[in-house]
């Protein structure tokens, strides 16, 4: 009984925090569901992917994989590349997830951009158990994503409309995250390194081969400029 009460309290504290993600995920999820239906995949596949993968950017990119020739190794490599940023979310959450016990594997599984942005900056309110708070934030985000995808799959099956340009929703998401990050810090060197290094590699290596050189160049630039960047932190 005591345990049940604790959980309800954590859920109540978690929900208001997740409202921005609720709206964002519903929209992105709907976009994903609609695009899946335009290439011939219905509710079942869409929900399965959203429940098991739970990574918006790679799911959008996967739409292209599902219409191309079968190549699971390329799919794996591309996922590792696109999701490599999650490595750094994990590093940032090492301390925060320390006390999560048996909930920890699920918390790590659900560590998306948005869940990370909520849990890396917010502490649970007084009297709310941390691990259950983290669990409900993750679970709520996960359910918004699956629900949005399901709604999109249903809309896509019922209504026929011109979806040209709908995939821009992913670009829009990243631009919004970039703007949000830009406002949250005065140190813009890392963001500028990311933009410039990738643009340079795109020009030199071309559309199909630029991702790995870009990641290497970013790591190199961040390492070389470490003193300057760290010197400007908290300025």
């Amino acid at each position: 009984m005591e345990e049940k009460k604790k959980r309800r309290k954590a859920l109540k504290a978690a929900f208001p925090l997740t409202i921005p993600v609720l709206t964002g995920y519903l929209f992105l999820g709907i976009g994903f569901g609609v695009l899946m239906s335009t290439i011939g995949y219905g509710l079942g596949w869409t929900v399965l992917m959203s429940a098991l993968i739970f990574a918006g950017s790679i799911q959008y990119i996967a739409i292209a994989l599902l219409t191309a020739a079968f190549n699971p190794f390329y799919a794996l490599l591309l996922t590792l590349l696109v999701n490599a940023r999650h490595l750094f979310y994990g590093i940032a959450m090492l301390e925060r997830y320390k006390g999560a016990g048996k909930l920890k594997p699920y918390l790590i599984f659900g560590l998306t951009d948005e869940t990370f942005s909520l849990l890396s900056t917010t502490e649970p309110p007084e009297g709310v158990e941390r691990k259950w708070f983290q669990f409900f934030v993750t679970l709520l985000d996960h359910s918004y994503w699956v629900a949005g995808s399901a709604i999109g799959a249903i809309i896509g099956a019922l209504i026929e409309f011109n979806t040209k340009g709908l995939d821009f929703v992913l670009t829009a998401l990243f631009v919004v995250i970039l703007v949000g990050q830009w406002r949250s810090t005065k140190n813009h060197i890392p963001a500028l390194i990311g933009l410039a290094a990738t643009a340079i590699c795109l020009i030199f290596f071309g559309q199909t081969n630029f991702m790995i050189p870009a990641m290497i160049l970013i790591l190199a630039a961040l390492t070389v400029l470490r003193k300057r960047i760290e010197g400007r932190e908290n300025v």
Binding site: A92, F174, Q181, I193, G194, A197, L222
Partner: peptide, 8 residues
């Protein structure tokens, strides 16, 4: 890295 990767 989170900042740089969003740029990427």
């Amino acid at each position: 890295l989170p900042y740089a990767v969003i740029g990427l």
